[in-house]
Design a protein around this nucleic acid. Structure first.
Length: 492
DNA sequence: AAAGGTACCAACCGCGGTTCT
DNA sequence: TAGAACCGCGGTTGGTACCTT
């Protein structure tokens, strides 16, 4: 350190230098907003804000070398560096720390971030702890950039390897009567994944927009023991919300404010104070809702205290609280609308629905559903009429997959319980809709979204199996070749 | 070539938790 | 025990470089 020791003799010199700099800057721009006065002890200290100079960096580095990290508020006193302690800490942590990696994220790191985000949410510091040499700010910026990109493209934030296994797992779990929380991806859910108590609803709100069921699988299993003040209240409870559901169902229209899709359709649910009925009407986890309302439902016994706020016919819980930040492309909106945690709770924890009356709640038996579907089709076709004809519609993504969304399949594949609906249910829906089942893009990225809908036929930018699969519906007809990633079967 | 848009990054701000006095 | 100080975290903003039209 002898080479840098010389810097340490000169706090006064540095102070003078900074004062000079300060004078220069203020003389140029008058009262420089980058300098703030902070009352500290005896007098006011002019603390600089804004970009750091090399000289400041050197001062700070030397300070840390001499005094170690911490005591950031003492930096000014010790070194004369006119920066707040906060600023110093930030600068050190994000830029000056010697162990920082300066190069871009490696693919491994990116994958790691995605998985960790799925697991932790916006816990940047925790992610940073898992990625040596990376800072929380760096990860946060990376994620936000990614989020922005994905949003713009209308894709899910999470790739299939993070998302797809959910259903098969859930199926298996269902059959085994086990909770997926116990066996879903131990690598993603170390420590049984119950170490996410701090996931806050406010943080989850935007995130959930991008959570396909695989994530929900993770999330649900992760959140099972989260107090009701967590995401459950704000986001997941709302997944059956009419607004989100319907914006999902019909991508061309984003519902905002008090604007009601139903009112638009002259369907008035204002007096619908029964959450289950509403869910039924929407074909949204109806059987789950049923289960949830039943006394013997295993998960209604309070494993998730407060997480079933929507159960008791409290329609307010179905309000789309998390839509307030929903500034998504319409295609994303459907990704945003995902099953409630109750649903996942049920999905995960409850044995197959044995209630025969589940059929009565199933989407295909809902008369209103047809109206909704019709409206959805109408609206969707309006939007896409310039892009493709209805006969041209191809189910281009895995219908069971959360990532293959259609106005209807996003409801019936993503929201239909595996236990209750499964493939039969899908097939029925597909039948009901004839050839009008539209698949929206999920995570898969067309090479260029500006291209027309023909891009729907191929997923590019990924190497996932589904990209090669053109015609998929949840039916056993066709060639029967199955997607190796999901349960979809080729119909060609 | 210029203007507008976008992506990326650095830094700041507000808040909450912890520690100190 | 209460208030102050400190520290860390997450969200947001602003600046700059690059890209597109």
């Amino acid at each position: 350190m002898a080479g840098t020791d010389h810097l340490w003799f000169a706090p006064r010199l540095c102070r003078q230098l900074l004062q000079l700099l300060s004078l220069r800057m203020t003389s140029k721009v008058g009262v420089d907003s980058r300098f703030v006065e902070e009352a500290s002890g005896g007098g006011n200290i002019v603390l600089k804000k804004g970009p750091w100079t090399k000289a400041e960096d050197a001062i700070l580095m030397d300070y840390v070398a001499k005094h170690g990290e911490g005591h950031w508020n003492a930096v000014y006193k010790q070194s004369g560096l006119a920066r707040s302690g906060k600023s110093c800490r930030l600068r050190w942590a994000n830029h000056l720390r010697p162990d920082l990696k300066k190069d871009p994220f490696t693919p491994e790191e990116e994958n790691s971030i995605i998985e960790m985000h799925a697991k932790m949410g916006n816990k940047w510091s925790r992610m940073a702890a898992e990625l040596p040499g990376r800072t929380d700010n760096e990860i946060k910026n990376y994620w936000n950039a990614r989020l922005k990109k994905q949003r713009r493209a209308g894709f899910s934030m999470y790739p299939p390897e993070v998302c797809f296994p959910a259903f098969s797992e859930n199926k298996e779990n269902k059959e085994l009567g086990t909770s997926s929380s116990t066996n879903s991806h131990p690598d993603l859910l170390p420590n049984n994944s119950f170490e996410i108590p701090s996931v806050e609803s406010k943080n989850f709100e935007p995130r959930q927009q991008f959570y396909p069921p695989r994530l929900l699988n993770i999330a649900a299993s992760s959140f099972l023991d989260i107090p009701s003040t967590s995401i459950l209240d704000q986001g997941l409870n709302s997944s059956c919300n009419t607004r989100s559901m319907l914006s999902a169902m019909h991508p061309s229209k984003r519902v905002r404010g008090s604007e009601s899709w139903f009112s638009d359709q002259n369907v008035d649910f204002s007096n619908q104070n029964d959450g289950s009925l509403r869910a039924q009407t929407l074909g949204c986890f109806s059987s789950y809702t049923h289960n949830l309302t039943s006394d013997h439902h295993p998960s209604s016994s309070g494993k998730i205290p407060g997480s079933h706020a929507a159960i008791n016919g409290n329609s307010s819980s179905l309000e789309l609280k998390w839509a307030k930040k929903l500034d998504l492309p319409s295609l994303q909106t459907q990704i945003a609308s995902f099953p409630s945690l109750e649903s996942f709770d049920t999905l995960i924890q409850s044995p197959p629905n044995e209630h025969t009356d589940s059929d009565s709640l199933s989407p295909r038996n809902s008369g209103l559903l047809d109206a909704i579907v019709y409206a959805s089709q109408t609206k969707a076709s309006k939007k896409y009429s310039h892009q493709e004809t209805s006969s041209d519609v191809v189910n281009h993504s895995c219908p069971i997959s959360p990532l293959g969304h259609s106005a209807t399949s996003s409801v019936f594949s993503e929201y239909t319980p595996i236990s209750g609906g499964s493939l039969d249910e899908h097939q029925s829906i597909a039948t009901v809709l004839g050839g009008e089942v539209r698949q929206e893009k999920g995570y898969f990225a067309p090479t260029d979204r500006k291209d027309d809908i023909s891009n729907h036929h191929l997923f590019s930018g990924t190497d996932w199996d589904c990209k090669k699969m053109v015609n998929f519906v949840a039916t056993s007809s066709g060639c029967g070749r199955g997607c190796s990633t999901c349960d979809a079967v080729c119909t060609v």
